[in-house]
Design a protein around this nucleic acid. Structure first.
Lengths: 106, 106
DNA sequence: TGATTATATAAGCAGTTGATTATATAATGA
DNA sequence: TCATTATATAATCAACTGCTTATATAATCA
C-alpha cells in the first residue's frame, strides 16, 4: 500500500487542473455521464473525455456503461491522501450547483 | 477564508511536481537553506531556488535570512487542505533521509 | 437498415513548465 | 579591499499540457 513520492506528485498533478478538479468535485456529489459533465462545465465533449481518461488511467474514476451512456464515478477508497482532500473542495459556482441539484432530483 | 476551485487547483499543481513535493516533504521535517536542499536533492542551485520561489509566491513557504544563508520553512497553517496532506507524504529514499537525520543532529 | 445520440481517439497547436547555463547580487572573512 | 560562499535572476530550450477540430466507434431507435 506504499506509494512513491513521484506517484503522489503525479496524482496531485491530476488535481492541479481546474477542469479536472471540477470534475472530481462534481463526481464527489454524484455519478455523471460525459454529456452531463459537458453541459455542467460548458466545454467540448472531447475535452471532458480526455480529462476523464487521465483520471481513469490513474485509477481515480471508474466507468460504467449504461446503454448509450457511460457513467463515471469517483474511486478514491484506496487513495487516502486524495479522499481526505475532498472535504476541502470549495463549492462550485451557484449556477453549476443548481444544475447538479436539478439532476439529483430526476 | 474561502478559496476558489481555480486557486485550489493551482496549489495542487504546486505539489504536482516531484522536486517540489520532495522539498515540501523535507521542510515538513526541518527548516533548510537552499544549499542543503541542493545537496539533498542532487540538483542545481538555480533549480531549487526557482522551485522555492514558486512555493513562496503561493505562500506555502517562508524565507528567513540567517547571515549568508536563507532558510526556508513550511507555512501551511492557513492551508488546511494542504496541511492535511502532509501526513500522507511517503518516506523519502533511505539515503536522503539519512542525510536529513544527520543534519538534525548537528 | 439508416439516422441519431453518446463517447473515444487522433492530429495539431499555442501556451506552459522544469531544467540548464550564464550572470548578478549579497553576505562573510581574510 | 578582494576572494569566497550563498542565493537570485535571466535567457534559453525541449518536453509536456490543455484545448480545439476532425474523425471513428458504439448504442439506440425509427
Amino acid at each position: 500500500m506504499t506509494i512513491s513520492i513521484e506517484k503522489m506528485a503525479d496524482q496531485f498533478k491530476l488535481l492541479g487542473d481546474k477542469t479536472r478538479l471540477k470534475i472530481v468535485s462534481i463526481l464527489n456529489q454524484q455519478d455523471m455521464c460525459v454529456c452531463q459533465l459537458v453541459e455542467l462545465l460548458q466545454t467540448t465533449q472531447p475535452n471532458i473525455s480526455q480529462h476523464l481518461r487521465k483520471l481513469k488511467d490513474a485509477g481515480l474514476v471508474r466507468e460504467d456503461r449504461r446503454g448509450q451512456w457511460i457513467f463515471y464515478s469517483l474511486q478514491v477508497a484506496d487513495h487516502p491522501h486524495l479522499q481526505d482532500v475532498l472535504q476541502y473542495l470549495p463549492k462550485l459556482e451557484e449556477e453549476v450547483q443548481q444544475k447538479i441539484n436539478s439532476m439529483l432530483c430526476e
